[in-house]
């Protein structure tokens, strides 16, 4: 196995772990704010790791650029959408969870 393939596998597995953590958070956390927090943070990192892993296998620099562009777009939109959902929930009067 080539060194780049080895790193790709490691990075993809690490990305999958973050996605799993985000999903577990989405299912287990008590209210909308904490769920958004778990989902967006973990998935952004997870996707970043996956994009890095795939970029190692890319055939051209253009492909690498596209992959990174996808990650940046998702970062931008998921952060903004998380804020919009949380804001809408707050306006609706949903109280943050307090232990």
């Amino acid at each position: 196995m080539l060194l780049s393939e080895f790193f790709t596998v490691i990075l993809l597995l690490a990305g999958a772990f973050f996605f799993l953590a985000g999903t577990v958070g989405l299912l287990r956390f008590p209210d909308v704010y904490t769920r958004l927090h778990a989902l967006t943070k973990a998935d952004n990192v997870g996707l970043g790791l996956m994009v890095l892993g795939l970029a190692l296998q890319a055939e051209s620099w253009a492909m690498t650029g596209k992959l990174i562009l996808i990650w940046l777009c998702v970062l931008l939109s998921s952060a903004s959408v998380a804020h919009l959902i949380a804001n809408a929930a707050r306006k609706k009067g949903i109280e943050p969870w307090k232990q």
Binding site: C73, L76, S77, S80, H83, L84, N87
Partner: peptide, 14 residues
């Protein structure tokens, strides 16, 4: 809000 405004400014040209 400011977030949606900024998002649209970045996304629409793209």
């Amino acid at each position: 809000g400011p977030v949606l405004n900024m998002l649209s400014r970045l996304l629409i040209p793209l």
